[in-house]
Design a protein around this nucleic acid. Structure first.
Length: 187
DNA sequence: GAGCTGATTGTCT
DNA sequence: GACAATCAGCTCT
């Protein structure tokens, strides 16, 4: 019952399904990473999605093949990592439970507490050293490593999305129930 | 613990 | 020129 590589077909589905199924998977970047505990889905006909107004230079990666990384800068200073699903849709990786390379992540983040290393999309990217260089690159190839553990029971909760001003009512945020590594608790 | 605010820059209107 | 899928540090309770 070990970890298995995630196939590209995993991402060729509706982003809500992918967001839910990504909870509990393991994401590593160059040997540093952990368990995904929080995600958000963004669909194509979704006013909150960067793809809503069509393809532009910034969101071009979002229209790439399933399992492509879409990385963008948020609020001028943070990076956010998304996994592209069907073209024009994506899942935002919001938080992780660090399991490998804790020391490296702590050094990059400038903090020691494990729960502060990757509990938030900007923090997660800083801990994994993900930035514009990764935009448009495949998540299923090095330096990325994405694994799932089929058959492992996982308790998943959902709620409304965070940090956006449009279509906030959609319950498209998913998290690992009771995890202390969430960016915020689910209400 | 909750709530406010400044930081900082690429992108679109 | 406004705004943004955020964070950290502050105040007040």
């Amino acid at each position: 019952m070990g970890w298995q590589a995630i196939p590209q077909d995993f991402f060729n589905r509706h982003p809500v399904e992918v967001a839910r199924d990504l909870i509990g998977t393991e994401l590593m970047v160059a040997g540093v990473g952990g368990i995904v505990v929080e995600t958000e889905a963004y669909a194509e006909d979704d006013p909150a999605s960067h793809s809503f107004r069509g393809k532009t230079a910034r969101n071009a990666a979002m229209f790439g093949a399933p399992a492509t990384a879409y990385v963008y800068r948020s609020y001028g200073l943070h990076w956010c990592l998304n996994a592209v699903c069907r073209p024009g849709t994506a899942v935002l990786l919001r938080a992780m439970e660090p399991t490998a390379g804790l020391g490296v992540m702590a050094a990059r983040r400038g903090v020691n507490a494990p729960r502060l290393l990757a509990s938030g999309p900007g923090r997660l990217c800083q801990a994994l050293a993900v930035d514009a260089r990764h935009d448009g690159t495949p998540l299923l190839h090095p330096p990325f490593r994405l694994l799932s553990r089929p058959g492992t029971p996982i308790d998943i909760v959902s709620g409304h999305r965070i940090g956006i001003s449009r279509a906030t009512e959609k319950p498209w945020r998913f998290g690992l129930a009771g995890s202390p590594f969430l960016s915020r608790r689910f209400g």
